[in-house]
Protein backbone atom coordinates (compact mmCIF):
# COMPACT_ATOMS: atom_id res chain seq x y z
CA UNK A 1 0.00 0.00 0.00
CA UNK A 2 2.90 2.30 0.82
CA UNK A 3 5.44 0.47 -1.30
CA UNK A 4 6.34 3.36 -3.59
CA UNK A 5 6.85 5.89 -0.82
CA UNK A 6 8.92 3.37 1.15
CA UNK A 7 11.10 2.80 -1.91
CA UNK A 8 11.79 6.51 -2.20
CA UNK A 9 12.79 6.71 1.46
CA UNK A 10 14.90 3.54 1.18
CA UNK A 11 16.80 5.06 -1.72
CA UNK A 12 17.48 8.25 0.23
CA UNK A 13 18.24 6.92 3.70
CA UNK A 14 19.17 3.24 3.75
CA UNK A 15 22.53 3.47 1.92
CA UNK A 16 21.98 0.12 0.22
CA UNK A 17 24.70 -1.09 -2.13
CA UNK A 18 21.98 -2.09 -4.65
CA UNK A 19 19.38 0.12 -6.36
CA UNK A 20 15.88 -0.06 -4.91
CA UNK A 21 14.51 -0.81 -8.38
CA UNK A 22 16.24 -4.16 -8.13
CA UNK A 23 14.27 -5.06 -5.01
CA UNK A 24 10.89 -6.73 -4.95
CA UNK A 25 8.49 -6.01 -2.12
CA UNK A 26 9.57 -9.31 -0.58
CA UNK A 27 13.33 -8.95 -1.04
CA UNK A 28 15.27 -9.37 2.21
CA UNK A 29 16.61 -5.88 2.91
CA UNK A 30 19.30 -7.22 5.25
CA UNK A 31 20.54 -9.52 2.48
CA UNK A 32 20.51 -6.42 0.28
CA UNK A 33 22.90 -4.66 2.67
CA UNK A 34 20.73 -2.92 5.27
CA UNK A 35 22.78 -2.59 8.48
CA UNK A 36 21.84 -2.03 12.09
CA UNK A 37 22.83 1.64 11.88
CA UNK A 38 21.11 2.24 8.54
CA UNK A 39 17.97 0.68 10.02
CA UNK A 40 17.96 3.59 12.48
CA UNK A 41 18.18 6.15 9.66
CA UNK A 42 15.44 4.34 7.77
CA UNK A 43 13.21 4.13 10.83
CA UNK A 44 13.53 7.82 11.67
CA UNK A 45 12.90 8.85 8.06
CA UNK A 46 9.82 6.63 7.78
CA UNK A 47 8.46 7.95 11.07
CA UNK A 48 8.86 11.50 9.93
CA UNK A 49 7.39 10.92 6.48
CA UNK A 50 4.36 8.93 7.63
CA UNK A 51 3.96 10.78 10.93
CA UNK A 52 3.95 7.56 12.92
CA UNK A 53 6.03 6.06 15.69
CA UNK A 54 6.99 2.39 15.50
CA UNK A 55 5.93 0.43 18.56
CA UNK A 56 8.59 -1.25 20.68
CA UNK A 57 7.35 -4.67 19.60
CA UNK A 58 7.95 -3.70 15.96
CA UNK A 59 11.60 -2.79 16.49
CA UNK A 60 13.51 -5.64 14.91
CA UNK A 61 14.57 -7.21 11.64
CA UNK A 62 11.13 -8.72 11.04
CA UNK A 63 9.58 -5.27 10.58
CA UNK A 64 12.48 -3.72 8.67
CA UNK A 65 13.35 -6.85 6.68
CA UNK A 66 11.26 -6.16 3.57
CA UNK A 67 9.26 -3.43 1.86
CA UNK A 68 6.09 -5.47 2.37
CA UNK A 69 6.70 -5.89 6.11
CA UNK A 70 7.35 -2.15 6.44
CA UNK A 71 4.24 -1.34 4.46
CA UNK A 72 2.14 -3.56 6.70
CA UNK A 73 3.59 -2.06 9.87
CA UNK A 74 2.98 1.48 8.63
CA UNK A 75 -0.52 0.48 7.55
CA UNK A 76 -1.18 -0.85 11.03
CA UNK A 77 0.14 2.32 12.69
CA UNK A 78 -1.74 4.69 10.41
CA UNK A 79 -4.92 2.66 10.56
CA UNK A 80 -4.73 2.50 14.30
CA UNK A 81 -4.11 6.22 14.66
CA UNK A 82 -7.32 6.87 12.71
CA UNK A 83 -9.29 4.45 14.81
CA UNK A 84 -8.75 3.88 18.49
CA UNK A 85 -5.66 4.66 20.54
CA UNK A 86 -3.07 1.92 20.58
CA UNK A 87 -2.32 0.10 23.75
CA UNK A 88 1.14 -1.38 24.00
Amino acid sequence: MYSQEIRTILAEHARLPVGVEQLTDDSDLYQAGLTSLSTVNLMLALEEHFNVEFLDRMLGRKTFGSIRALSEAIGELRGASNAEPLTE
Partner: peptide, 8 residues
Protein backbone atom coordinates in the same frame (compact mmCIF):
# COMPACT_ATOMS: atom_id res chain seq x y z
CA UNK B 1 17.14 4.56 17.39
CA UNK B 2 19.21 2.51 19.81
CA UNK B 3 16.16 0.42 20.64
CA UNK B 4 16.07 -1.07 17.16
CA UNK B 5 19.84 -1.60 17.20
CA UNK B 6 19.60 -3.47 20.50
CA UNK B 7 16.86 -5.69 19.09
CA UNK B 8 18.81 -6.41 15.90
Amino acid sequence: GGKVQKAI
